[in-house]
Simulated scan of single mutants.
Amino acid sequence: MRIPTSGHRLVRLVLHLPLSIRLGLSHVAVLLVGLGSMSVAADAFDVFEGRGHVDIDPIFGSALTVGVAAAFTVAVVFSRFLLRPLHRVRTATHRLAEGHYDGVLDVPREPGLAALVEDVNRLAASLADTERRRARLVSEIAHEMRTPITILRGQIDGMADGIFTPDDAMFASLTDDLDRLRRLADDLSSLSRAEEGAFTLHAVPTDVTLLVHATAERLRTQYDDKYVTLEVVPGPTVTARLDPDRIAQVLVNLLGNALVACDSGGRVSVTVQVEQEPSPHAVVRVEDDGIGIAHRDLARIFTRFERIEHPNRPAPAGGSGIGLTIARGIARAHGGDIMATSPGLGRGTALTVRLPLELTGTA
């Protein structure tokens, strides 16, 4: 049934009224329905009893007047208690929009409003944490870029002034610093694509086991230099449709992190297998016996620009804290994921990559 045009206008008018007025009108509406029902029931009861009709209009009018006044007054009074915390929430959201994240609202006793206030407080805390990491990102990027730029400037000025000889060694040094800047730019670009889910995948049928072996061999020299054992456990041939370059990027990150986590004499193992539940997946597991991760930090390691600090162990030099964020973004672009587990500090870490045998993610 279509509502007449006048009805539409009335509905729009009511929706634009203040909440306190609408609460009052709702109480009045309930009262009118109740009194109307009582009147109909009284008439039906009189007919049923055969005592004739009793005129209840004066009683109904008096009850209606008193009831409307009482309902509206009660609604306005109670709405003040309801609107007060809502006004505080509104003020808090305005402060959040202005970039002020330090205001924590008092949680009211009413459960529904308490849930809303707690959500706003969590939002403020999350935004404050994001802003803290953003500020640290700017500082770290500036630091990472300042060092090679300063070296490049010094070397170029030195060659221009005749202090340095423009020989092969000098050009090799210039190339190293330029490569460092390029890697930083590539990492930031990959981070942006990871957060937007915009990785371009060139997926082909790939032997995952062979890819893992080849990637591990690329890094074996670094393991040998640090006297850390790298063991690639023999496994079945696992073929999946994926982007081999992107997955190799993931494996390099995981194996590099495992190497950093281990002391001299440590051990890292890599296994490849297939799991059928909940759907056929290739599973690559990189496990080390290094410094481990506290349970509270397992989720944080995938957060961009987060570098977990360990007591009496400095953070690795040159790390930007975005490698695992990028790695997880690549895995999820393939329709898979990366998970971390650790028994605790000093007890090693395992990072598990799950990749569907058929590409299900979006490129």
Rank of each mutant, 00 (worst) to 15 (best):
F72P: 01
L184C: 13
T91H: 15
I151S: 07
A248Y: 02
A327K: 06
P111V: 08
A63N: 05
I338G: 02
H53R: 09
V233A: 03
V284Q: 02
L105Y: 07
P343T: 08
L298H: 06
A282E: 05
D187S: 11
L25S: 10
D161G: 08
A299G: 15
V11D: 08
E49Y: 09
R220P: 00
R122Y: 00
I330C: 05
I291C: 10
V74W: 05
V232Q: 03
V274M: 11
G266Q: 05
G154Y: 03
V252C: 10
S62Y: 06
P85C: 11
V353K: 03
V107S: 08
R328E: 12
F45A: 15
G158N: 10
V233R: 10
I326D: 04
L230Q: 05
I151G: 01
D167E: 08
G319A: 14
N312E: 13
G256C: 07
G335P: 07
T221P: 00
F164S: 09
R267G: 00
A124H: 04
S6V: 08
R241P: 01
D119H: 12
D179E: 14
A333K: 04
L82W: 12
H334P: 03
F45W: 14
I322Y: 08
H53Y: 08
A160V: 11
V28R: 07
D55P: 01
P18S: 07
L23C: 14
I301D: 04
A363G: 11
G103D: 15
P148C: 06
P58G: 04
F305A: 12
A70L: 12
L251R: 03
A63G: 06
I308W: 01
N253V: 14
A333H: 03
T352L: 05
N312P: 02
R88S: 14
A75G: 08
A261F: 12
A294C: 05
L357M: 10
S192P: 02
I330A: 00
L219P: 00
G24A: 14
H87T: 12
S279V: 04
L19A: 15
Q276G: 04
P244Q: 11
I163R: 14
I326W: 05
A363F: 05
V284K: 06
P280T: 03
Q273G: 13
T215F: 04
R296H: 14
H295I: 09
H334E: 09
D119V: 06
S37W: 07
L259H: 02
V283I: 13
T206H: 00
A194Y: 06
L116I: 09
A331W: 00
H16E: 15
R296G: 02
P311C: 00
V208P: 01
